[in-house]
Design a binder for these strands. Structure first.
Lengths: 125, 125
DNA sequence: CAGTATCCCCGATGATACTG
DNA sequence: CAGTATCATCGGGGATACTG
């Protein structure tokens, strides 16, 4: 959901804003990965996420930069080096992700016959 | 995301489970509406949500029943009367929604030039 | 290495009509 | 009243190829 900052369109309810920030298939995972690495390079993120494509990863990172959830630091070397890290705003969602994670663990066992698997990313929260 | 209970497929990470439960465009709103009405009828939910269509509302309610987030009570009267209410599991996500709501209010002002609007549903949390 | 550029697919959501 | 049935749409996400 694009709430174009400049145009100030798409007035949204608070929960929508939150879900736009860390919802979707990848953003929460990216936050998790960044949370356990002070700084991390593009290809390391990609490796940790396993099966994300470049197009999607690049798009997610771009949105998250615009949302001020992460910062991108580019070193003009050859080969290029770019590092990503959580901003303070980014770090501030970690407790929420932990809450969701804990809630899910507590309530999924009843619903699913199986327990939720350990999650490489969430478990490092 | 359908994690068919019977087939037990789609093993997911905890955060995914949570986002499946209350993520998406409508579920969190439905939970909010139900949280401020002990019981509420189908058309009342629809009215409160404003612009949801029957097809989508019915689908959401069905999923949420399957997830054991809400209960449906049907009275065999004419005209039909059906009431919905949050289960204990459903109520247990309210603190999380509140967290998200509060976090959004605290952090959106910087990003958006405008404050997030009061939200009929969230504000009753 | 860290991405862009394209093209494509599918599932979530919406519109509309109909019914027990 | 409380839905179901169909069809249409839209965009998030994916596949692949290419590049400074």
């Amino acid at each position: 959901m694009k709430y174009d900052l400049k145009l100030g369109k798409e007035i949204m309810c608070p929960i929508e804003y939150g879900l736009d920030i860390f919802g979707g298939k990848w953003k929460s995972r990216i936050i998790c990965v960044l949370s356990s690495n002070k700084v991390i390079r593009y290809n390391e993120i990609k490796k940790e996420l396993g099966n994300i494509t470049d197009a999607v990863l690049a798009a997610m990172l771009k949105e998250m930069i615009a949302d001020e959830m992460i910062i991108r630091t580019q070193y003009n070397e050859i080969p290029p080096r770019v590092e990503y890290a959580l901003t303070e705003k980014g770090k501030s969602v970690l407790p929420i992700l932990q809450c969701i994670c804990q809630w899910s663990r507590e309530h999924s066992a009843e619903a699913l016959d199986t327990k939720l698997p350990a999650c490489i990313s969430c478990d490092q929260l």
